[in-house]
Computed example of a mutant assay.
Amino acid sequence: MNLDEYRGVWIFIEQTDGEIAGVSLELLGAGRKLADKLEVPLAGVLLGEGIKALANQVIAHGADEVYVIDHPVLKHYRTESYMKGVIQLAEKYKPEIFLYGATPNGKDLASAVATDLSTGLTADTTMLDVDLNNRLLEASRPAFGGNIMATILCKKHRPQMATVRPKVMKALEADAARTGKIIEETIDLKEEDMRTKVLKIVNEVTKKASLADAHVIVCGGKGMGDEQNFQLLYEFAETIGASVGGTRDVVEAGWLPHELQIGQTGETVTPKIYFAVALSGAIQHVVGMKNSELIIAINKDPNAPIFDVATYGIVGDALEIIPKLTEQLKQLKNEKGGEVSYA
């Protein structure tokens, strides 16, 4: 393989029913930085049916080029059809870096493409950079249970590929004045040749608010002591209109369901305010909340790693501090007639 033939940073643009996934816009922001360092174009890869108009949105969020394959067989995501489209583009244009969102579809597609192209793939990346001397993608992710950060390189194969978790990177503000190149490609796909069929799309509706969408989060750790003490956080959260989450230890102890776990093996969140209560701040937790706008940590240990990422820190016993905060905020809420915004 002649590595010098490969140039450019590509982002797989995931879309459903004409709406681009947030993680794809976030990756355009990260890809823009990588492309500028390498002095190469940033391109989006857009597959689907009737999706050409989305190319302008991709350009507005940082892309220089957009490769578009518009075909009826690509209306709904299927591994086989999308893999064929992506591989056709990659073999023709030879990108050196190709990034995907770590969504169910993104992870499925990336692994299939990596296998067919005989290249490497770093999963669930949380940090991206490039070594300019060797033009190597430095894809970093927590390893060994989150105890260390591993930086993974793909030295001998191209494209260098990685999936990146939603909410880890930041999207650029859309610039409608940006201009770019739209490259339309055709592909030979026949529905009768597809080994899987989409029979029905079921959109489930839930009344539960997603932690990923919460503006204020109160996250508790094992330092709360037991499930009964954890109820103090629910009362505090209710007072300030926040959602409650927990660390892996809390979930494994059975105090919270898995969908409320924050961290490497749970949700990645970016609220306006994040209360980190009685949790140490292990790497596997921090990667899931470090991009919060304001982080307030409460911990008895003044040397707890969580204070390294906190905006404000309170050293003390959460079992004493949380009830006092709840009481004072309730009083403030009553004085203001119940109209108090904490976000």
Rank of each mutant, 00 (worst) to 15 (best):
Leu199His: 04
Thr163Cys: 13
Asn134Arg: 09
Ala60Gly: 04
Lys190Phe: 11
Thr270Val: 04
Thr103Lys: 09
Pro305Ala: 13
Ala209Leu: 09
Glu259Ile: 04
Asn105Leu: 08
Thr125His: 07
Val340Gln: 03
Gln284Asn: 13
Ala35Val: 05
Met224Ser: 07
Tyr77Ile: 02
Thr247Asn: 12
Tyr100Asn: 08
Val198Gly: 07
Leu279Ser: 03
Leu132Arg: 08
Gly281Glu: 08
Ser341Cys: 02
Ala318Asn: 04
Ala102Thr: 04
Leu232Ala: 09
Val277Tyr: 02
Leu329Ile: 01
Gly62Asn: 07
Gly246Cys: 14
Asp131Cys: 06
Val66Ala: 02
Thr270Cys: 13
Asp116Ile: 03
Gly254Leu: 15
Gln160Asp: 00
Val309Trp: 14
Gly225Asn: 00
Phe230Ser: 01
Glu335Asp: 00
Met194Lys: 08
Gln88Cys: 02
Glu339Val: 11
Glu138Arg: 14
Met224Tyr: 02
Leu329Phe: 10
Gly22Cys: 02
Arg165Asp: 10
Ala114Phe: 02
Leu136Ala: 06
Asp308Phe: 09
Pro271Arg: 04
Ala237Asp: 10
Trp255Met: 12
Ile59His: 05
Gln261His: 00
Leu199Gly: 05
Val202Arg: 05
Gly8Glu: 09
Val23His: 04
Gly18Gln: 07
Tyr234Ser: 03
Glu252Gln: 15
Ile20Asn: 06
Lys37Phe: 06
Cys154Lys: 00
Ala60Asp: 14
Trp10His: 14
Gln228His: 11
Gly22Thr: 05
Met161Asn: 12
Pro305Met: 13
Thr103Asp: 09
Lys181Trp: 07
Val130His: 10
Val113Pro: 03
Ala143Phe: 06
Gly223Val: 01
Ile11Thr: 14
Ala318Ile: 11
Ala310Met: 13
Lys190Met: 10
Ile283Asn: 00
Met83Trp: 02
Lys94Ser: 08
Glu80Phe: 04
Asp213Val: 07
Met169Asn: 05
Gly145Thr: 08
Ser292Val: 02
Gly18Phe: 01
Glu80Asn: 00
Val68Ser: 05
Leu153Val: 14
Met224Ile: 03
